[in-house]
Design a protein around this nucleic acid. Structure first.
Lengths: 208, 208
DNA sequence: ACCATAGCTGCATTGAGTGCAGAAATGCAA
DNA sequence: TTGCATTTCTGCACTCAATGCAGCTATGGT
């Protein structure tokens, strides 16, 4: 038996189908819109039974947030990789900058679609916010653990919440003001600008 | 025609039915749980047709957030009522403290239920977060307008986001650590503690 | 008392999501 | 390869939220 296939056949097949569901959904959402696409359509496009869809994704919205864990994991890793002289704020700034900049080329199309649907479809926005809150909580827990002397759990929650809230609040304003048909690159740079603007107070604090 | 009845009969009737829907929902959610209660049940308890329910509330979740505008309005008013020497941070701290403290006696039961369901039911949490974001955006817009020299729109978004995010992040941690069967008063004081803890960095800034 | 209109209602329909039970595919051992 | 145990897939039936429509009822103004 080969070892370098990192999964059993079952798992590889499963991963393949999962991916093809995301691909099919991306395609269909772009063509017919989110509400105009049914789960049955997506399942059919990926050639599985409608019922089976729900053993891959718990809901239609989840399709837009595959690997939501990855970003959180990256943050947690960034916290774990802190230097001995780092302050919580420094670590957090690094972690969040990193999170905002992880756009792989492959996921780019999905990311753009997601951004648009978060604006337009309440159900999607709701799910996205929920995932964000969950991520915040995990990050806060790890941060509190990493700096047991400087931060208790509640303070860590407040700190992370303030950071993420600042970025989100700034990005939201920027997105709203963007012309309806914007260049994806334009959005990307606008988000980056908003992010650094939001984090600026803390950066100044760091430079003291 | 009497003038002191501040609405037409139609509107008073409508308001009465709306309230009785909220009351019925509160009752039923407490007794049978959120998922265990159908919209049809609620409509029946308020003695209206199931179809009619949706002309009062756009969705089942809305029942838990009646008058979500009131809080926003209070914040906006607080901004409008600023003194000439106030800084954005000072105004915002006042506005948010006020928002957190507006528990009327009558809405108390609903507020407790809402808090619980936000924790337990994803759909409710999602809706709550959405309303929060909308509120943030409105507040940010007004704040930017009130301090055109100190803040542009993006910075206002970041500032408000940071405040609300800090409070929310802190509160979330507190709520999570609370024993399953907690005294409502306990929760209330915990939330207040978390709030002031979250706002502390800015209060210090103000005191300089 | 009358009429125009706003609001209420039942009916039918769509689509998400779940439970269940049988069929099919897979992993494993001989 | 064959056979067996277990996981996964799938169709079917069902519940419930939500919407469109068409007819009915109640209200407000004259």
């Amino acid at each position: 038996m080969r070892y370098d296939d990192r999964m059993t056949l079952r798992d590889r097949k499963r991963a393949r189908i999962r991916q093809s569901l995301v691909d099919a959904a991306t395609e269909l959402f772009e063509r017919d819109g989110y509400e105009g696409t049914t789960v049955a359509d997506i399942a059919a496009a990926a050639d599985i039974g409608t019922r089976t869809f729900f053993s891959y994704f718990a809901s239609k919205e989840e399709l837009l947030f595959p690997e939501s864990d990855r970003r959180v994991q990256a943050c947690v890793d960034a916290i774990a990789a802190r230097g001995p002289a780092d302050t919580p704020v420094e670590v957090l700034v690094r972690a969040l900058h990193l999170t905002g900049a992880d756009n792989d080329d492959l996921t780019d199309r999905l990311a753009a679609l997601r951004m648009r649907l978060i604006r337009e479809v309440p159900a999607v926005r709701g799910r996205g916010l929920q995932l964000q809150m969950d991520a915040q909580q995990q990050i806060a827990a790890h941060l509190a653990e990493a700096f047991p002397e400087e931060l208790d759990k509640v303070r860590a929650g407040a700190l992370v919440g303030a950071f993420v809230g600042a970025v989100t609040g700034a990005v939201q304003v920027v997105i709203e003001d963007l012309p309806a048909h914007h260049d994806p690159k334009e959005l990307r740079s606008a988000v980056e600008e908003a992010t650094s603007m939001a984090l600026q107070p803390w950066m100044a604090h760091r430079a003291r």
